[in-house]
């Protein structure tokens, strides 16, 4: 059987081909294909329920895909390599998946900091346990990372003592501690009070300036306009259209893109 789509691009940092994800009878992702090159910043937008968050979660195998292929650095994250690319995905062993997730950073909408650890330990724990970095060295790196997100003075605070914006900045530092080559952001500012959005966006922009490869699901069109190389519009579990942010915002090819972008601009 011939693969319907062209094979995934092994030279891209992330390459997805014909990704299908079902929750029961509902097809949440309906054949999504996307390539992200090194140092590229891609912002994904779309109405709620369009599958953008599910797609992001599939990229580091927090969700299993039912069909298609996702390669990160030329390798599947949660599945055995498939010679033809058309047979159904076979789940890898959890240890292998864990190993392959190491260089993919993920930032959650609700931060998901570890409440029993201080900010410093939240950042230092994964390098210590996963990479085997000596504790003193990991803590030193963690202190530097906290300083980088402007929270050097909060190292000994528990997450419960931090504001939402501060928690999300710690969460970004925690992901960076694993020295990822790809950062995934799942609506990083939607759980924040409006006055805290700016501090998180500022940290993300610094990452962009440092040349980080990023895929960001967000409704922050200001960030998309100033920082994104590409804007991708999701609709009904598929990519409706994509292109430079300025073009999509001013001259979209689809009526639905135009209507959606106008709606979130009015809201924001």
């Amino acid at each position: 059987m011939e693969p319907i789509t062209s094979p995934a691009d092994a030279s891209a940092v992330m390459s997805a081909r014909g990704v299908v994800k079902r929750f029961g009878a509902v097809r949440v992702l309906n054949g999504v294909s996307m390539d992200v090159r090194a140092r590229e910043v891609v912002v994904v937008v779309g109405p709620s329920g369009s599958g953008k968050t599910t797609f992001l979660r599939c990229l580091n195998h927090l969700e299993r895909i039912d069909e298609g292929e996702i390669l990160v650095h030329g390798r599947p994250v949660g599945h055995r390599p498939r010679p033809t690319g058309s047979e159904p995905p076979v789940e890898e062993r959890p240890k292998v998946v864990a190993h392959r997730r190491r260089n993919i950073g993920f930032v959650f909408q609700r931060f998901n900091l570890f409440p029993h650890l201080t900010a410093l330990d939240n950042v230092a724990v994964a390098p210590t346990k996963v990479l085997g970095t000596p504790k003193a060295q990991a803590r030193e790196q963690a202190q530097d990372l906290l300083a980088r997100v402007g929270l050097g003075h909060k190292a000994s605070s528990r997450p419960s003592a931090l504001s939402g914006g501060q928690q999300q900045r710690v969460a970004i530092a925690r992901a960076l501690a694993m020295k990822p080559e790809l950062m995934l952001f799942d609506e990083p500012t939607s759980a924040l009070d409006p006055e805290m959005v700016g501090e998180v966006i500022a940290v993300m922009k610094e990452l962009v300036d440092d040349g980080m490869t990023m895929i960001v699901v967000t409704h922050e069109m200001g960030f998309a306009r100033s920082a994104a190389d590409r804007l991708v519009m999701f609709d009904q579990g598929a990519v409706l259209e994509e292109g430079p942010p300025e073009r999509l915002m001013t001259d979209p090819a689809h009526e639905r893109t135009w209507a959606f972008l106008r709606r979130i601009n009015e809201g924001g």
């Binding site: 580091n60 927090l62 959890p94 240890k95 998946v97 864990a98 190993h99 997730r101 190491r102 993919i104 950073g105 993920f106 959650f108 609700r110 998901n112 900091l113 570890f114 724990v125 994964a126 346990k129 996963v130 969460a171 925690r174 992901a175 694993m178």
Partner: peptide, 13 residues
């Protein structure tokens, strides 16, 4: 979300 955050950092089960 706690287990997901741990997994996303490359921790084994």
């Amino acid at each position: 979300g706690q287990a997901e955050a741990a997994q996303a950092l490359g921790m084994t089960p």
